[in-house]
Design a protein around this nucleic acid. Structure first.
Lengths: 227, 227
DNA sequence: CCAAGCTATGGCACTGAGTGCCGCAGGTAA
DNA sequence: TTACCTGCGGCACTCAGTGCCATAGCTTGG
């Protein structure tokens, strides 16, 4: 009986008790007792009470770091999108567990704060990566990296929360779309004069139809111009 | 002697001890003793140990709320900028105290997390305000509100941290400039959906030349489509 | 087959944050 | 004077988190 590893049994007991009595009303002694284990064993498996709920943030951080590390200068934005998709997928694969965690973080302020702090660590990773990629330690580049990183994780969180609330059936498609929107916000960086004369289209919106504005587009491309 | 109110004496004692021994090495008993007061009095004045360092986040939140509340539909963005400037000014006026707090939050993880959680509350305020202002509970508007709020607080934090590190002599000017940059990222609202079906071009970059991708563009416009 | 060692666990004692209650001094108003 | 009210101290309690020591079970080397 009870062949399951202690770590699992503790997590099961913890979630069950959190559901029954609420997070704050559950002590670690309760959890250990329910799992048929000692209090010491709990702390050997989890650093803290909150840790039962957020077990693998470290692994996720490493995942992001790895994905970002394996990118050349020209594929930086792809790497960012991939990393974001990776994180989202991680949660989606957790399925019901992620939703139970969301229910808890929605109710308990301490857990919400903890979650936010974790997200900030992801954001920091992205910020540093983007800043590096932008090259110059210019003040302007620094600000732009900060803005972009903030937008990236905001987009991720937005889609994730939609999925957690059951408002999204295809979160991966949504996050890809959201990331396109985010990247569209930021003008292309340093490398922009696409080698071999590509085409750069800057986002705008107009009342004219496409044939009307084609000549302007063409002229822009030829001039390599501004605005 | 010691006519200063307990609240002040406790804060002074706390900061002094944090400087001397570090945050974690200081107990609340230490603080109370140094202030010549009882432990009970500490908790009557501050909810927790961290609270001594972040005394008036509630007041700041209210400040933002008030500033945002007194804005018409057409002055929403001005209100956002004003609110951000207000928060920055609050810190700047704290002067040395803000810098001591920064030194602490830079070293102690628990304090950093707490700070981040507070910032998240500001961000939430901005997000809700911006979402309201954007009107429609469209999914797209919701995402855009989230992105914009994230960018707004990122810009604020960027400038604030520069000032805290002594890298900025005129933070107010810098934050105004940063806010201009943020607002420039986001296409003007309301007025934009050109009445009568205009053309929307999303920013992207490609190695192909413009004639190659024209058919795709045309198809997009006709389908009113995705991807 | 036995001994040494490793690992997972339990028990226990301790620190320190945070809560709740009660009691007391000093000032104020009826 | 009496009757409050307010700010404070003391005390006892819960609970999270740490550190240390003991033990049971299994593996490995002789």
């Amino acid at each position: 009986m009870s062949k399951l590893p202690a770590r699992i049994r503790l997590a099961d007991a913890a979630f069950a008790l959190f559901d029954e009595r609420g997070y704050e009303q559950t002590t670690i002694d309760d959890i250990a007792e329910r799992a048929g284990l000692g209090r010491t064993t709990f702390f050997r498996n989890y650093r803290s009470k909150e840790d039962v709920i957020f077990p693998d943030h470290d692994r996720l951080l490493a995942l992001i770091r790895d994905r970002l590390a394996t990118s050349s200068n020209s594929t930086a934005l792809v790497a960012v999108s991939d990393a974001v998709r990776l994180v989202l997928l991680h949660y989606v694969e957790e399925g019901d567990l992620a939703r139970r965690r969301y229910a808890l973080t929605s109710k308990v302020a301490a857990l919400r704060d903890r979650e936010i702090a974790s997200v900030a660590r992801y954001q920091r990773l992205f910020r540093e990566f983007i800043a590096d990629w932008m090259g110059g330690p210019t003040e302007s580049a620094s600000l732009r990296a900060e803005l972009m990183a903030a937008a990236v994780v905001a987009a991720h969180n937005h889609v994730l929360r939609r999925w957690l609330r059951g408002e999204s059936s295809d979160p991966v498609a949504e996050v890809d779309e959201a990331m396109r929107e985010v990247l569209a916000l930021f003008p292309a960086p340093g490398s922009s004069p696409a080698p071999g004369g590509g085409t750069t289209v800057v986002a705008f919106r107009t009342g004219q139809d496409i044939d009307t504005l084609l000549p302007s587009l063409r002229r822009l491309v030829e001039d390599g111009a501004e605005r």
